[in-house]
Amino acid sequence: MGLQKRFSFLIVFLAAVLAAGLGRPGWGLAESCIPGVGETFPPIALEAPKDPAMRAYLGIGDVQTFTVDQVDADVVVVEIFSMYCPHCQREAPTVNAFYEVAQKKNRPEKTLKILGVGAGNSPFEVDVFAKKYSVPFPLIPDGDYSVHKTLGQVRTPHFIAVKRGADGSRKVVYSQAGSFGSPEDFYRRLMEP
């Protein structure tokens, strides 16, 4: 292959990569991206938990699907996890401890709730993870990866915190893969004005 053909191939390849969007809004035809701080969380329809206690925890009533904006809390933390992810398994006790901190510190005028979305996980797999790690908060299956794809195919675990503003709007205040560190410090960071 001559130098000119190689150069032409490289130009076509780079144009295709740019057209694919590189996962950034405003770039080409990208359909998904990781919501960044200050952005809104996409209005993704999540499967409502079957357990009435989990529905009550989320404050969503008797619906088939819900969005993060419908969760009755000032701050909602969404964990994207997978039953098969060793990092998610290792992080599970810390996430459970974070849930306990939130339960103890929440006040009627200021609440934080957490839910997990199992990327590529069926209802069975989500239940296995919940039982094995004694997860006390709702875990939502995402067997077809639709939520995971919409959120930019983030690495797991990935934590996204969405905060309700004084005007009722919801914005992402935290979006990060991996451990969030100390449960106490993370709660304080998210609940500060």
Rank of each mutant, 00 (worst) to 15 (best):
P123V: 14
E192H: 11
A48R: 11
R90D: 09
P141H: 11
E91V: 07
A15I: 13
V172P: 02
V68N: 11
V76F: 07
R188C: 01
G26W: 15
R164G: 00
P193Q: 12
A102R: 02
T67A: 00
N121L: 11
T67D: 00
K131W: 12
V162Q: 08
E125C: 00
Y99F: 15
P108W: 03
P108K: 05
A177E: 10
N121K: 10
L112C: 13
A130R: 15
D51W: 14
D74I: 13
T67I: 02
R24F: 15
A16D: 08
F137V: 02
D185A: 10
A56E: 09
R90N: 05
K110V: 02
K149V: 13
H158G: 00
Y99P: 08
L151T: 05
G143E: 12
S175N: 12
G118F: 07
A15R: 12
P25E: 10
P25F: 11
E47N: 06
G28W: 07
V135P: 02
F81E: 00
R55L: 04
A130K: 15
I34E: 03
T40H: 15
E192Y: 12
K131F: 14
V63W: 06
Y57F: 09
T65E: 11
A45W: 15
F7W: 07
V173L: 13
R164N: 02
A73R: 09
K171F: 06
D74Y: 03
G181W: 08
G38P: 05
Y145V: 11
F124M: 06
R6T: 05
F186D: 10
P49I: 12
V147G: 03
F124Q: 05
P108I: 04
K113N: 01
F66N: 05
D142Y: 01
A19C: 13
V128Q: 07
F159S: 04
K110I: 04
Q70I: 13
D69I: 07
A130E: 07
K171G: 00
R107Y: 02
L14Y: 12
P138E: 06
F98M: 09
F137P: 06
S134F: 15
L139Y: 07
R90H: 15
K132A: 03
V68T: 09
E192I: 09
N106Y: 09
L112S: 09
S8G: 12
T67E: 12
S169P: 06
F186W: 13
H87I: 04
V173G: 10
D167R: 08
H148C: 00
R189Q: 12
S175D: 05
S134P: 10
F186Q: 12
E47I: 11
A15F: 14
P49D: 08
G152Y: 05
V162K: 08
S134Q: 15
L3Q: 14
V71H: 11
S8M: 15
M83R: 14
E91Q: 03
P141G: 08
L112G: 12
H158T: 02
P108E: 07
I114C: 10
M83P: 03
M1R: 15
S32G: 04
P93W: 14
V101E: 01
S169A: 13
I60Q: 03
V128N: 12
G59S: 04
A73S: 07
A45I: 14
G118T: 08
